[in-house]
Simulated assay, not measured.
Amino acid sequence: MPFPERVKIVEVSPRDGLQNEKAIIPTEVKIELVDRLTAAGFPNVEAASFVSPKWVPQMADGAEVMAGIARKPGVIYSVLTPNMKGFDAALAAKADEVVIFGAASEAFSQKNINCSIAESIARFEPVAEAAKAAGLRLRGSISTALGCPYQGEVPVSAVVDVAQRYLALGCDEIDVADTIGVGTPARVREVMRAVTAKVDPARVSGHFHDTYGQAVANILAALETGIAIFHTSVAGLGGCPYAKGATGNVATEDVLYMLRGLGIETGIDFDAVVDTGQWISGHLDRKSASRAGNAMAARRAG
């Protein structure tokens, strides 16, 4: 299958990237990060999370972030909403898209939320109905789609099953997420082909973590199966809580560098993204995890 001519990048650093940071990041820094990203041309930014601050204290200021950003017309501002309380907050914050999340691994589901996969997805029914009634986009994320820290391998059929359940809920987009970064290109091809046999590939996205250094290769494998939506995080922000010391999300700069080399359009200003990655890394007082970003910054400095 030929590569898509254009790819949509969903930038997840303001939410998935920052949520594991130990030190609380000032609200104004989060707002500036979102605004820098939309100015760089991202069509979709995961801006905040409306989960209990008891569980994710870093995301407690979601309403303030959403109120403070400079909204760019045409940009989809997404927020994570695990329940109706979160949905109501998302609606009040004028989110464009709400994101629900469930696992493809029974062990992961039981360990994290003490219920089965089927029960977890049933809990999202009122959120899905409310989102559709309010005219909001609905996205469903399938975590541990390529491996689980508790049960190991996850059957491809389990991933397809969750994708079909999300489709039944009315999800506009479905994320196949390698939560712990254990996937390899052959497995990615297998999973994506199985999912896209049941779901229109135009509605499927890839969310890869770079724990074992496979994320860019996995995106290439997903491109080969017709996937044209990917989640990335500037400077590779976002740790992986299940793999000690591991990097988290694939770095946006690295993905943009590869896509540019393949002649695939994104509509995103690569240099602006490099600047943003270096800026936020400086704020967090550490080096960016993006190889392409650091190489470009070093070339400029030299």
Rank of each mutant, 00 (worst) to 15 (best):
M1E: 09
V7A: 12
V7C: 09
K8V: 13
K8I: 11
I24Y: 12
I25R: 10
P26M: 12
I31D: 13
D35A: 10
D35H: 04
T38M: 08
P53S: 08
A60I: 06
A67I: 03
R71N: 07
K72N: 01
P73E: 14
L80H: 06
T81G: 06
M84N: 06
A89I: 00
F101T: 13
S105R: 04
S105M: 08
A107G: 13
F108D: 11
N112P: 04
I113Q: 11
S120R: 08
S120Y: 03
F124K: 07
A128Y: 06
G140P: 00
T144F: 14
S157Y: 01
D172G: 12
T179P: 01
V182H: 07
T184I: 14
T184E: 13
A202F: 00
V204W: 01
Y212I: 01
V216S: 01
A217S: 11
A217E: 02
N218Y: 02
A222D: 02
A228S: 15
I229M: 11
T232F: 09
K244D: 05
K244E: 14
K244V: 09
D254M: 14
G277S: 08
R286Y: 13
R286L: 12
K287S: 15
K287E: 15
S290E: 06
R291M: 14
A292F: 07
A295G: 05
A297T: 01
R300D: 03
